[in-house]
Write a protein that binds this DNA or RNA. Structure first.
Length: 740
DNA sequence: ACCTGTTAG
């Protein structure tokens, strides 16, 4: 450790960081107590320096220092930086671990990793016996996994008596966050000390606009306003690049089109102290964009050209673009919200929170002073924007995470110490699903099957189908499908109508090639066709398939195969025999994972879900079953999309007999007992009630209409129809804007 | 009679 005399510029650079002056006191603070909150803005150096300080202070004598990040890229790049600063080979003393990429060895003592990775490690070793210090970073982002880790660490290590359980010495826990919410964190962790490090960012001046007020929460007028503002900035502000925040791909493409048009038609020339800007380089940026196109964003613009990046929220945390001096903030995001009342995830456009607006503004102050132009009014800020974004744990399906907690011995998952507890019905819904998939029993205890299921990085339903298939010896049918369904959508549908037609034709051909009218079978067929192709990437291009997504499906499939293989080595892996054709076998396996997603034809093209919510749904036009009417009365589906209608996507026809025995399970559950607070035996009353209802539904057309009427009435009160109404409103507005 | 943000295992 005799680097202090070094003249290496990197050393002096790290000494210039704001955190350096606090080094000794920080080390002491970690030494003093088991929990510590460290807060500091980006640029304070806490992520790269604190682990090094602790390393120097001897904290690695007894174990590793683990630092979690919510994102893979962050874990990797930070580890690279620190390895460089500590002058060691990446993967030796300093390493990282993310899914599909473990760059750490037995020697690694400073280990950066994703929060999801640490959670999996806890599953294997609840005492975290390899670690002397665990640092949770970016806690203010409130990712689902970080929130769960926070609760687990509090539960298991805050009490000094418990803190050494399964360990020879107590674990130190450091929680790092941006300045907001630190009081809350400290009191959550037993009023532990808070250490504040000043930031090193440049000031950003924010101004409010007049375009979006409290009454415009559903409007899409902001696209035009954002374009106007960008041109304003371009013609009247000094040199420096622009970053525009919008919500989605189509919106971004529209904004870029408008910008091209208008930027050409205006005549301007701005010249102050040789800082001249003459042209505008317009660059869209969103997640599903090809990677090489994304890379273009980071290149500095040609001389005298101003860069204008029009991006989704991907530019708020995931990607950092240098040279941004101006932010234009639409004030909206697209957010995935789970609705437990209808049991669906709905993607909605909503106003951002104030803290998120500050985060966006901060993107202009990375290298020099910046300006942020908010297109919404001060009143909108005060009345429509919440202080903080609702944490993921309160708006997401919890099924997988609850299974993890159960496997960690957290029996009472309702009274688990959540920093912000999710609504009880979210938890109950998760328990119900786990019971339905046989992962837990009637008393809420993890089953043998559940213990196997938790090993898979998948939704429990998909895992259930895989395990069923494996016990029947046909896992090769299910593994690729599960992999394909757990990556982003692999079917590309371009914006231009001509190309759209071409893509649709190709996709229909792929469906036909699979030989059966079953979207899951299409996925399987695509998987193999591409894999056996000589040049998979050109095969994808020709067939309008997302190569990057499919490639990751290949790695996921390999990983799933390995996990399954490991489980099958154990002697108690179940084995079953099935006598029938392959097609039926495949679909029966799918049924064990998707019987919660069964729909029955109601009238005409309308289907009705059988999950107890009784939502009216339509088959999405991208499905090979779209427009297929004959003899198609029962289907299972992978997911639901709420747009102009409620659509089910990735659909498979089934026979009622295949799910007949499973369906009652959807209704017999007593969540009260499942939640481990009940003390009485359940009767079969619920199940009998359901059977009666089901018998009534099985009667022909006349009653089906009655059922539908009843269900529709109920549906009007759900938020699905609210979401649909909002969508239609936005669509109308868009058309009006177009007409203008 | 089609339009889905971001992230993670």
């Amino acid at each position: 450790m005799s680097k202090s005399t070094s003249l290496d510029p990197k050393d002096s650079e790290s000494k210039r960081l704001p955190i350096y002056r606090h080094k000794d006191r920080l080390i002491q603070a970690v030494r003093d107590g088991s929990f510590l909150v460290v807060t500091g803005e980006t640029g304070s150096g806490k992520t790269t320096q604190l682990p090094q300080y602790l390393h120097q202070a001897g904290f690695c004598k007894d174990g590793k220092i683990g630092i979690t990040q919510p994102r893979r890229v962050a874990a990797i790049t930070v580890a690279q930086r620190v390895a460089q600063e500590m002058r060691c080979t990446l993967g030796r003393e300093v390493g990282y671990q993310v899914r599909f990429d473990d760059c750490s060895t037995h020697d690694t003592v400073v280990k950066y990793m994703t929060d999801g990775c640490l959670l999996r490690e806890i599953l294997a070793d609840p005492a975290l016996s390899q670690y002397s210090v665990v640092i949770l970073d970016e806690v203010h982002e409130r990712s689902l996994n970080t929130d769960i880790l926070l609760g687990l660490l509090k539960k298991n290590f805050s009490n000094p008596a418990k803190a050494t359980k399964g360990r020879s010495f107590p674990l130190r826990v450091v929680v790092m966050s941006a300045t907001l919410e630190t009081d809350k964190l400290s009191s959550f962790l037993g009023n532990c000390p808070v250490f504040t490090i000043p930031g090193r960012n440049f000031p950003v001046t924010c101004t409010f606009g007049s375009a979006v007020g409290p009454k415009d929460t559903e409007s899409t007028a902001y696209v035009k306003e954002v374009v106007k503002m960008a041109l304003d900035v371009h013609t009247s502000e000094m040199a420096g690049d622009i970053l525009v925040f919008l919500t989605g791909q189509s919106e971004i493409e529209r904004a870029c089109d408008l910008l091209y048009e208008k930027a050409e038609s205006i005549d301007y020339r701005y010249d102050v102290q040789d800082q001249t800007v003459e042209g505008l380089l317009i660059l869209p940026l969103y997640g599903s964009m090809p990677t090489d196109q994304q890379r273009q964003i980071f290149q500095p613009p040609p001389p005298r050209i101003r860069k204008c990046v029009v991006a989704t929220n991907i530019a708020a945390t995931s990607l950092t673009i240098n040279g941004i001096k101006y932010i234009i903030d639409s004030g909206f995001v697209k957010q995935l919200n789970h609705n437990s009342r209808v049991g669906m995830d709905i993607l909605e456009v909503v106003p951002i929170s104030k803290s998120e607006a500050q985060q966006r503004a901060g993107r202009a102050g990375r290298t020099s002073e910046g300006k942020c132009f908010r297109i919404y009014t001060k009143e909108f800020w005060e009345k429509c924007m919440p202080e903080y974004t609702v944490p993921e744990i309160q708006r997401t399906s919890l099924t997988a995470v609850i299974l993890v907690l159960k496997c960690l011995g957290v029996h009472d998952v309702i009274r688990f110490p959540y920093l912000d507890p999710p609504e009880e019905r979210f938890i109950l819904e998760a328990l119900k699903q786990l019971y339905q998939f046989d992962a837990i029993d009637r008393r809420g205890r993890v089953t043998h099957l559940g213990e196997m299921m938790v090993e898979f990085p998948l939704h429990p339903g998909l895992t259930r189908a895989i395990l069923k298939a494996a016990s029947l010896g046909c896992q090769d049918l299910l593994l690729p499908v599960a992999a394909m369904l757990s990556v982003e959508n692999i079917f590309i549908r371009p914006g231009h109508p001509e190309k759209q037609k071409e893509a649709d034709t190709k996709h229909r051909a792929l469906a036909a090639k699979s030989g059966s009218m079953n979207d899951f079978a299409t996925l399987l067929s695509v998987f193999h066709s591409c894999k056996s192709s000589d040049r998979p990437s050109t095969w994808c291009k020709e067939n309008w398939i997302h190569w990057r997504a499919l490639k990751s499906a290949f790695s996921v499939e390999t990983q799933l195969r390995e996990i399954l293989h490991r489980l099958q080595q154990k002697k108690d892996f179940p084995v079953e025999i099935f006598d029938g054709n392959k097609n039926e076998l495949f679909r029966r396996c799918l049924c064990t994972g998707y019987f919660t997603n069964v729909a029955r034809r109601s009238v005409g093209k309308v289907f009705c879900t059988m999950d107890g919510h009784g939502s009216m749904v339509h088959i999405h036009p991208s499905s090979s079953l779209f427009d297929q009417e004959a003899e198609l009365n029962w289907v299972i589906f992978h997911d639901v999309l709420v747009t102009s209608r409620v659509y089910i996507r990735t659909v498979c026809p089934i026979r009622y007999e295949w799910v007949k025995d499973l369906l009652p399970k959807l209704h017999e559950v007593d969540v009260y007992e499942l939640s481990s607070v009940a003390r009485e035996e359940v009767t079969d009353e619920e199940m009998i009630k359901w059977e009666t209802r089901e018998a009534a539904k099985r009667q022909p057309e006349a009653s089906a209409e009655d059922v539908m009427k009843k269900l529709e009435k109920r549906n009007n009160e759900t938020t699905v129809s609210d979401a649909r109404a909002r969508y239609l409103q936005r669509k109308q507005q868009r058309q009006q804007n177009k007409a203008l």
